[in-house]
């Protein structure tokens, strides 16, 4: 599998024009090397999901994009919609928080896995089915043969996320964008998906962008962590360094806001929760937070 990552430079994104212009991303620089998991952390409204969507070329209509996203010497921001379609789903794939939303409820798993593979590769039905079985095996869906004939509602959330990952892997992507892939899942199911993503990254050499607000997931999975706030990356470093020795005050506040940060129940139970309070104040000040838009 080809090993190529993505390089993002000075990526800006805004909606609207003039006075009504709303800045979502204010100049993102990010290197996403192959064979590594690059984490994008941050709270709702920080722009982490939009960064993922920008790489996929899936931004909503009316978005003004600036800067550059390079992939295999191609400038993705300049591509026409039609050309981008050739990349998306084939070389750049994405999985979302809610697997039920990314799978068509009325089609069998077989149809969903095979159709876009054949569209991109022109493979025969037989070859495509073989590949689908292989991928379902890879993501450890039990009895792949039977699974192909089923519909999405016949699976649990965890199994569906595995199938969504299998679907994303069909065309041998070089880049996988995982947007909160385990947020909707129970913690015991989450563990399995995290393992799976790690294996895929290591064995297939895929570049993974992991978008999540969950620092636990970050700590378990990401190789490097970029912390986003209000459309900017405030800190980017190795996993260990960002979590154990955060440089930016916002990162520190995020980590101190973790329930067991102080790790002493007494401290937590006392009314003085100033560190957590600071973190929360910082986030309350984010103007794009859901309730205020």
């Amino acid at each position: 599998m080809s090993a190529s990552g993505i390089t993002i430079q000075g990526l800006t994104l805004s909606f609207g024009r003039g006075d009504a212009e709303k800045q979502i991303l204010r100049g993102i620089d990010l290197d996403v090397p192959a064979g590594q998991i690059t984490g994008l952390a941050g709270e709702s409204g920080s722009g982490k999901t939009m960064t993922g969507l920008a790489v996929c070329g899936l931004l909503p209509a009316g978005a003004n994009v600036g800067g550059s996203i390079r992939f295999e010497d191609v400038e993705l921001t300049q591509l026409k919609q039609r050309a981008m379609n050739e990349y998306r789903g084939a070389k750049i794939a994405m999985i979302f928080q809610d697997p039920t939303a990314s799978l068509h409820p009325m089609l069998t798993i077989e149809a969903q896995l095979i159709d876009h593979y054949r569209h991109h590769t022109g493979a025969s039905k037989k070859v495509a089915k073989q590949r689908a079985l292989e991928m379902l095996g890879l993501v450890a869906v039990p009895s792949p043969e039977a699974a192909l004939r089923k519909y999405p509602h016949q699976f649990s959330g965890g199994q569906l996320q595995r199938i969504a990952i299998a679907s994303a892997l069909m065309c041998e992507p070089s880049v996988l964008i995982a947007d909160e892939p385990t947020t909707a899942l129970d913690v015991t199911v989450q563990a399995g998906i995290l393992r799976l993503l790690r294996t895929l990254c290591d064995e297939l050499g895929i570049a993974i962008i992991l978008v999540t607000h969950d620092l636990g997931v970050m700590s378990a999975l990401a190789d490097t962590i970029a912390v986003m706030r209000m459309g900017e990356i405030v800190e980017h470093g190795s996993r260990f360094q960002v979590i154990t020795d955060p440089q930016h005050p916002y990162t520190r506040a995020l980590i101190e806001a973790l329930p067991d940060a102080a790790d002493a129940p007494d401290a937590a139970h006392s009314p003085d929760t100033s560190s957590a309070a600071n973190a929360a104040n910082a986030s309350d000040a984010v103007p794009t937070e859901g309730g205020l838009s």
Partner: peptide, 18 residues
Amino acid sequence: QRLLAAIPVVDGLGRLPG
């Protein structure tokens, strides 16, 4: 036990839970 083991620890060590 399974539930507790599945919780990712924020230690920056990259340990996969479960």
